[in-house]
Design a protein around this nucleic acid. Structure first.
Lengths: 146, 146
DNA sequence: GACAGTTTGATAGTAGTTATCGAATAATAG
DNA sequence: CTATTATTCGATAACTACTATCAAACTGTC
């Protein structure tokens, strides 16, 4: 059954990575995958608390981070810790280093045109867009290798 | 001279918008445009402080926000206030409402393929990318109109 | 220069997130 | 199954980024 196999694969995943399979960890993971949206840590916490009232917010944060490090979930926008401003008004895209948070501009011409094939849903009015490429910059790639 | 005309156009811009042209505001703007990267408010503050040692961090924040509201600068990624996680592992893109911070997934198929025409600079290793479209969702667009 | 409106600086407050550490739980060896 | 070790948990203090408040200073206008 779907539920059973999902739980088992989660168990396997943890074992392969040397992660302890705790009740909290399982519930957080199940809750998160059942949410299908882009929930914040607080939102996850609120739902998990219904099943484990004694859970700590810190536990939710720690596990979300762990899941991300192991590729089970992604952060929607690698959050730069603080806001970043730019004055480059020419159309361009971004390379963002996930490790050192460096941002590099890529001229729009270096990437083919982006076009939406369908209408944007529910009257959404697009003001601007950019292609955000996430990865490791040269320096960080080297450091990770060693 | 380039410098003079830049200052004058800033003055005009403020006048047109009913913004007072203060010394602080000018220095913050000049500093920001001279930085050409993606500086954080703190980084701007540190540099501005060299010219106006008595400036307050709050003033820098307030002016950056004002500049953004008037389209003089952009925030690189509209910062969701809190982290957001997703488990959707299928390739997809995002619509982000600048007002209510809602995030809507757009299947990769709804957008033509994105391809980099040149090599990524300086050994950057791209792990994933997505097209981030910013604007107003249907609800917010309506509310702004009135 | 006087008046009204705007902005500034200092600082307190808030939200989101992380660090710390003893207690509890899970994995592992016997 | 029990003992040992490693990991994780919960509570909470601490930290970072940011915003609100408000009197004093400044800007634009008459």
């Amino acid at each position: 059954m779907a539920r059973t196999s999902r739980v088992e694969s989660f168990r396997d995943l943890c074992e392969r990575r040397g992660l302890a399979v705790t009740h909290q960890r399982q519930v957080i993971f199940e809750t998160l995958t059942a949410m299908h949206g882009h929930p914040s840590p607080e939102a996850v916490y609120d739902l998990v608390k219904e099943r484990i009232p004694s859970i700590s917010l810190a536990t939710v944060y720690k596990n979300l981070k762990t899941f991300e490090e192991h590729g089970l979930v992604q952060e929607v926008s690698p959050h730069h810790g603080s806001a970043r401003f730019e004055t480059n008004s020419a159309p361009h895209h971004h390379l963002v280093c996930l490790r050192c948070k460096a941002i590099v501009d890529v001229p729009a011409d270096d990437i083919g045109p982006v076009r939406l094939r369908k209408r944007a849903p529910a009257g959404f009015r697009i003001q601007r867009y950019s292609v955000e490429m996430h990865g490791l910059c040269g320096d960080c790639a080297q450091q990770v290798e060693s």
